[in-house]
Design a protein around this nucleic acid. Sequence first.
DNA 1: CTGAAAGCGCTTACAG
DNA 2: CTGAAAGCGCTTACAG
Lengths: 340, 340
Amino acid sequence: MPTIDEIARLAQVSPATVSKVLNNRSYVSAQTRERVKRVIAETGFVPSQRARWLSTQRTLILGLLIPYTSDQLFADPHLLEIMRGIESVANEREYNLLLSTARSPSQAGSAFTRLLRTDVVDAAIVVETLDVQVAAALAHPDKTWAVIGYAHAEGVPAVHADDYGGALAAARHLAELGHRRIGVISSVPRPSALDERLRGITDALAAADAPLDEALIAVGDFSLESGERAALELLGRPGRPSAIFALNDRMALGVVRAAHQLGLHVPDDLSVVGFDDISLAALFTPALTTVRQPGFRLGAAAATATFALLDGAAPGPPTVIPTELVIRGSTGPPPAPERR
Amino acid sequence: MPTIDEIARLAQVSPATVSKVLNNRSYVSAQTRERVKRVIAETGFVPSQRARWLSTQRTLILGLLIPYTSDQLFADPHLLEIMRGIESVANEREYNLLLSTARSPSQAGSAFTRLLRTDVVDAAIVVETLDVQVAAALAHPDKTWAVIGYAHAEGVPAVHADDYGGALAAARHLAELGHRRIGVISSVPRPSALDERLRGITDALAAADAPLDEALIAVGDFSLESGERAALELLGRPGRPSAIFALNDRMALGVVRAAHQLGLHVPDDLSVVGFDDISLAALFTPALTTVRQPGFRLGAAAATATFALLDGAAPGPPTVIPTELVIRGSTGPPPAPERR
DNA sequence: CTGAAAGCGCTTACAG
DNA sequence: CTGAAAGCGCTTACAG
């Protein structure tokens, strides 16, 4: 591959002039421009991005930092939707996406620090992480970044769904159907989004005079299998719940599987609610009642906020994306013996 | 952020020595090394990757070129599995992944050319594209790359599944169940993988003395909705098929939906076969009979081949990943009137 | 063991 | 309109 110097020599101009032609910058006579362009076309010259990056101090690369292993990322339709939203906005700005996942769950910090403290990416979007050390490392003032989730650092724009409102609506829906004993499947550790969802559930059930029983909170890891295990546990005990609210859809689908295994019919014997509204939720039998949070919009909003920062705007308040309760076939009134 | 020159000044050594400490290269006295390390720690210095890239001629970035829009990519579980396989191997080598999708289906060429002809990535993996112009542009001798699919260029390692064998086995399965009229849902344009699958079907049905009827080949675009449309068309005509083989799982799920709409029971009235074995295939009701092609292994093999090339190995013959017929609940004998 | 110098391939004021 | 020179921040032989 020729360099700009060789092109300059062939076109009998200086490298500076070739650079101007390449970037359509300042005045170059039509004649000279033509000559340079011809040489470029003839040689198939493509300027070195590496050199350009060093001199312009930009790479047009947006980092996407996901504190999960790639296995976890690719298993999570909601994360993928977020990624799609980011991709879409980045693409418009002619930015490429550099994906950074963690080698292992505990290693998220080092990978991120590496990427954020160096000059590989112009800016980054971080999917919320609980790790305080990571948050500290991230708080590097030179770097432009935004968070999808609840911001832990000052001056960093955050984008999140209305987790509280969505969970509130869904729990109210269950209470209105007549459910009094409602199981919840959460996770440990618990990202802020899940804290908010739990808060919504707690408030809705308190208002319905059917306060959330701490003993009915089981723990999963967002996977379908973990939801299945947690549900088997909740349903295997005496005084089992008549409804289970899993804090994401994949675990909710696991709950349905667990119910089938125990010979329970959904929704006649057990109501199930999820969160996210991944595409599978509507395709499942029975179709899942869930809280829709638009992943694409979350990702797009985060990317937009990041580019705004890059363009010099001041970081604004958190962007909250509305959620929506979607009632489908997996919820109904509790079975008769439990009805008042 | 300080530069290497400032670190050198503070540690009272030359920039060259700092560089040696940074890269653990050649001999540096323990004492000097300590001093330099201390200064680096105190200042929080992180060397500029951009400068490093320019002088070392490597970026540790692997390009992933996908000739689809990001919408199409993220809607395709099989592609995502491939991506996961690539990610996994790249991660081990401390490579980051740079994602390049097409802005629009027709623009795949320019995006790829841009990325492959420049020096942004050390190497790339290309998901097979039909576009001949793209293939030509890709055939840039300087760049290391591999193809997932059937290679169109000389000296480029290719990795693909045993499409022919998988489709052959699935079509034979249908023939053995007694099906004589078998519909197929393919696509236009048709990647080589689908050519191979069609060839497998043709051979299996010819051997079973129930030759494939060209009139029963419908066209989709890999999406569930397109499979639904194509199936409605195939099933709405007189002499409708008793089985439909959709050349990917998402279209097959669309076929099942179409059958439901027409009041047909799967598999009693219509048998359905897919291809890929995405995770949804097993979760669907009825669970889908399909040909499993391990996306993760495809991706991992392609990444491994790419790194081998980067390490100086000569490109070998295509790697063929075995496929496997997975028989589930969506296939059965044809309905009585059609049985001989 | 250590450092001066050249080089990676561009861009960017600045002079002319 | 055009070009000489400096600069981006590292690494890499090569000398000492």
